[in-house]
Nucleic acid binder design. Structure first.
Lengths: 224, 224
DNA sequence: GTCTATAGTTCGATAGAC
DNA sequence: GTCTATCGAACTATAGAC
């Protein structure tokens, strides 16, 4: 038996429980029960709850972001003239994340990530900074190259809105299946990928119409 | 003294604490301390923790969605030919939500909402269903009217991606301020509103290129 | 309406046998 | 490496005085 057999089953169980209940709502007792091991064994293998959570993030983000880097590099290597299309760059960003849904862990990890990205306590911020800021900087640079006419500030706005859309769509809460009465399938990786790429590509290009628009507009304020 | 003085300070305190620590991470003790009242008083005024959380959602969503309905109606009433622009419809959806940031509670409530929208436990699902599905259906109908050429399924995809982008951008974790080294200000309501409207309008219109695309595509699968 | 006090759970973490 | 047992702290909720 491999020395890490129990550790893996702990990590797998923790991933499911964290996805369902969030960080604070998850107890070490429940993880131990789900993993079929004694509670003390979690501390032996994974130290604290906080460290266990980081191990979960590290395990999956490393895989996804390695594929992203490979495919992003391939975009630029294979592009005629050295500059790929915006769609190709977006695909290398979106596809590896959404396609993790093919695996048993994909849905769970997406839900963990969606909560993580929308939290700003110290623990969440540190994890995003450590495991996702580097890849973000690489994609922002790539976007600047494929959209040379777009002002730099708009590239940042566009990256914020694109990642917000991708991460939150990935969470797959089933809401849009409910609202559409099943007309569309939120769980289809391929269908979601093409919509996200198409939407983001047009959204990003559209931001060029905003060049120089940094002052407060004169729009009427909502009487909130 | 108004009969609801203590209750309001409890709700205000709970809003801050829930925003910072999430539902599970929030304790009634901490809320009582933040509100400056005895813990038992929370149960007297707000019953259980779950009911207190619903009171928070109800209090703000009612305000924001009432304004949205007013402004959406105004779009259609004032439109030449009875059909407003896509941008006007999106503005009526996005502006009231983002502009809540002008108030002391806006930032806190946005963070609560972002976590809520990305959770799919029973409690979260029930609250989204009760307080946000009705307004969602109204906007989906409005989008069908202003984008009559867009296939119905794409309207649902577009609504999913748009709300994902808006809700997650609203969370204002400060990440894009960090990544851009302060080049852009995530906290500027007006700047975020114009970007979200522009991005979503172009994103939604772009989905029309996908008409009839419901089968799995032949794109290479990532070697995840 | 507001308080103190506490019942009854559940939590993260650790000690120590095997 | 894996277990049982348990400590000390935190939690939600309620009882009951004022």
């Amino acid at each position: 038996m491999a020395v890490t057999r129990a550790k893996d089953s702990i990590l797998d169980a923790a991933e499911r429980i964290f996805a369902q209940h969030g960080y604070s709502g998850t107890s070490m007792r429940l993880i131990a029960e789900e993993a079929g091991v004694a509670q003390a064994l979690i501390h032996y293998h994974c130290k604290t709850k906080e460290n266990l959570f980081e191990l979960i993030i590290e395990r999956r983000s490393t895989i996804i972001n390695r594929i992203r880097r490979q495919e992003l590099k391939q975009c630029f290597d294979e592009a005629k003239g050295g500059i790929p299309t915006l769609e190709d760059v977006l695909q290398s960003f979106i596809r590896p994340a959404i396609e993790s849904g093919r695996y048993s862990w994909g849905r769970e990890f997406s839900q963990i990530l969606a909560k993580l990205a929308n939290s700003d306590d110290n623990r969440s911020r540190d994890l995003v900074h450590k495991y996702y800021d580097p890849i973000a900087r690489e994609y922002i640079e790539a976007l600047k190259r494929v959209l040379p006419e777009l002002p730099e500030a708009e590239v940042y706005w566009g990256y914020l809105i694109t990642t917000s859309a991708v991460v939150s769509s990935m969470a797959r809460t089933g809401r849009i299946n409910r609202l559409s009465a099943g007309m569309l399938d939120e769980d289809s990786n391929e269908q979601m990928i093409v919509r996200l790429i198409q939407f983001a590509a047009n959204g990003l290009r559209g931001l060029s119409a905003l060049a120089g628009l940094n002052v407060e507009s004169q729009k009427t304020v909502s009487p909130l």
